[in-house]
Every structure is written in C-alpha cells, then in structure tokens.
Amino acid sequence: MEEILAEEHMFIGADTASNILLPFFVKPGYEGLLFQFSYEPKFLDDEALAVNLLKKSLAKYEGALEDQPDFKAYLPLQNLLTLSLFAPDAYLGSAHRQNPCQQHLISESFASYGFQPHPITKGIWKAAVNAHCVITDFCSWKLRIYALCEEEMM
C-alpha cells in the first residue's frame, strides 16, 4: 500500500461554498485506490450561538419565527464537507453524506457508495474537498490516499 497523497488543511467560515482541488499522480500497476477523509468539529457546540444563527437564517428565508415553533429541530448546526473524485477521464461522483469520518475504495469492479467503479489508470487523478457549510470558526480536515496492488485488494 503506497501513500500517494497526505493533505491537511483548515477551513474557516468564509470558505463555505468553495472547493479545494487536489491532483495526484497514479503510477501504473495498481488495482485500487483507498481514500480516508475526515474533518472536525462536526457540530457547533455553542447552543446559544447556534440558536442565534438559526433564528437569523430562518428569519431571512422563512419570515416570522412564531410560525415555526419547532425550529430547534434543526439543531445541532453542523459543518458539511464532502469528497468528490475525478479519474483522468471522468467524474466518478461524490460522497454526499454527513459522516465526518469516511473511507472509500475505488477499483475497476467495485466502488464505495457515491462513486462509480473505474480502472486505476495511470495519470493525474483529482480529489476535491467541497465546503458546503462551515458554521464553526475553524474546521480542519485530513485526506489520505493510498494506492493498492492486487494482493492488497483481497
């Protein structure tokens, strides 16, 4: 198993609605790619701040809060980062889900939920970390990518 990319970074609120594109080179001879992606914190723990932000947001989008007695159902507010993948010749998909700690495998015959299987072709692949929402002051993330040979796929 060869580590071919190790990236750590910190997002701030202003990074919401942006992407970081991470190209990585895959040498010939591999059968699979393993992606380990995680970020923290997931939740905005300051409930008073969260309620305040929520009230502002709902007032902006939906008008009077008195029409929404159950607005606290939206709590806790959370960060959402996703991982998307591009093979040299195709977009493979995205793991659009709330889990802040994810592991994905791609091969010619198998792919984790959200991605299409694809042969591990030589060339420049790209991972994109998508900042859908950063509600905390900081949100740090890590991405590790490993190339797997045939026997490591068993």
Binding site: S57, L58, Y61, L77, C133, I135
Partner: peptide, 8 residues
C-alpha cells in the same frame, strides 16, 4: 432555507 439550515 439555505445555510446553515439546508446546505445550499
């Protein structure tokens, strides 16, 4: 609703 209630 958009962020942070419904992302995007």
């Amino acid at each position: 609703p958009g962020n942070p209630v419904g992302t995007g």
